[in-house]
């Protein structure tokens, strides 16, 4: 392998030293707490960041999502289209070219067209919906209902496939609807509670 020990060696030393640095503070209370393996963590980690790095493999389309939505979501959320509402606020509030951006005066702000990142609907539906049996949707089902909701909100096209690669790349229409664009702590503006 010409791809050089020379090159690899310093990299290994560097990686080793960073780890050593972080490890340099030994445990104060060893013996308490059980170490977790990577497999342990994968079995429970369902927190999806904005880049979707943690998304599991899977795929779905709006058409598939429509069928699942009708069976498992419609009773509470209505038909998912703009026309009919269920018991709750509708999940479709934007329309192509006119995404919903939230409101201060009166109107409720809700629905996926408000979300800053495409991964948020995936994370939330996967963890919390339907309320009677959260976690019961398989990854493919979640990709499909998310595709359905984004299609009905005018964010993607009917035949777009949502999977772990395409979903995080969907540009949400309200991405710049938040202040500050990237939350910081402590906030730069005074007073701190504004």
């Amino acid at each position: 392998m010409p791809c050089s020990l020379k090159f690899l060696l310093p990299a290994m030393i560097l990686a080793g030293s960073v780890a050593a640095l972080a490890q340099s503070q030994p445990r104060v209370y060893p013996g308490l707490g059980t170490p977790l393996s990577q497999a342990d963590i994968q079995s429970f980690d369902r927190m999806i960041g904005p880049e979707g790095k943690e998304l599991p493999p899977g795929r779905g389309t709006a058409k598939e999502g429509a069928a699942i939505f009708a069976k498992r979501c419609e009773i509470c959320h209505g038909k998912g289209t703009n026309e009919e509402n269920g018991l709750l606020r509708s999940l479709v509030i934007g329309s192509p070219g006119k995404p919903y951006r939230g409101a201060f005066y009166g109107e409720e702000r809700n629905g996926p067209s408000y979300y800053p990142y495409a991964t948020i609907a995936w994370d939330y539906i996967n963890r919390a919906m339907p309320p009677s049996n959260p976690g019961s949707l398989a990854p493919n089902d979640v990709y499909a209902v998310v595709a359905f909701l984004y299609y009905w909100n005018g964010i993607i096209k009917e035949n777009d496939v949502m999977d772990e690669k395409t979903l995080p790349k969907v540009v949400m229409p309200n991405r710049n609807g938040f202040v500050p664009a990237v939350p910081v702590y402590p906030p730069e503006k005074k007073p701190s509670w504004y």
């Binding site: 408000y114 990142y117 202040v179 906030p187």
Partner: peptide
């Protein structure tokens, strides 16, 4: 910041002084 549904959607609120943008992460 991971932008969970709660802070980025459910608990964010638009405000006139922010030109109708929403403030997220109220600390």
């Amino acid at each position: 910041p991971y932008m969970a549904w709660n802070e980025s959607m459910n608990h964010s609120v638009t405000r006139p002084d922010l030109r109708d943008k929403a403030r997220w992460y109220h600390f």
